[in-house]
Design a protein around this nucleic acid. Structure first.
Lengths: 118, 118
DNA sequence: TTTGTTAACAACCAATCGGTTGATAAACAA
DNA sequence: TTGTTTATCAACCGATTGGTTGTTAACAAA
């Protein structure tokens, strides 16, 4: 399903690679909030928070609505789920390899050393 | 368990925020590989791949062993699992809120506004 | 020894990131 | 109208990233 959203994965992982943005995610998990509300507990300016929200928005991790002059920010759980899905496809494959690792090692022990055949 | 590894989360998410490094992860999920083996299918130099591996290694997403002058790179599934754990704690909390949203709204309507108690 | 392979290290460069300040726009309230 | 709140836009700065080239080290093979 997720094939060509490479840049979207880029943006999403990059968005989470910042403690301030992760704290914003954590806060939004308890409900929507405005830029001012998000900026207050952080020791940075509103402009900086606004930039962080733009990064999260371009990664589609959050969405914005309108409420008069306020622009509440909402979490988008579907995008978070897409990230875990990407990670799990390799994490789980790897675990599957572990299950069959013994068989591989035994077959190699009877045929050859563990050297790479160039 | 994972409390103060903020910088480790930084490094891990930042490491995954690059398509080349994600392709390296995908490749390693099918077994260990050397720098040369990893660099070949990518149109960048070995030095660049070596840097990518350093980034992944500092994020503890991969480990390196010794085999003569080769340094095979191995995937570290435990770290991948830590990432999904971080994401899931907010993804799942959010879903839980949806289930109990009505109750929360009703109780708040009778007690107070949605302001955070400092 | 010499030669070739594997990989890291160092220095450098263009581009990007996180943050700031200052100005601006939009939606109200008076 | 004027003023206030909310939030964005624009320009700028220091630090970091991703990539390169060149060099060096460690080991294998001859």
């Amino acid at each position: 399903m997720d094939r060509s959203d490479d840049s979207l994965l880029d943006k999403a992982f990059l968005a989470l690679a910042d403690p301030a943005r992760r704290r914003i995610i954590a806060r939004l998990s308890r409900g929507p909030a405005t830029v001012n509300e998000l900026a207050e507990p952080f020791e940075i300016t509103k402009q900086a928070v606004s930039k962080h929200i733009q990064v999260l928005e371009q990664a589609q991790l959050v969405t914005r609505t309108r409420d008069a002059q306020r622009r509440p920010v909402h979490l988008n759980p579907a995008r978070l789920e897409a990230l875990t899905a990407w990670i799990d496809q390799y994490r789980l494959v790897r675990e599957g390899q572990f299950r069959s690792l013994d068989a591989v090692l035994q077959s190699q022990a009877t045929t050859n050393i563990t050297k790479d055949p160039s």
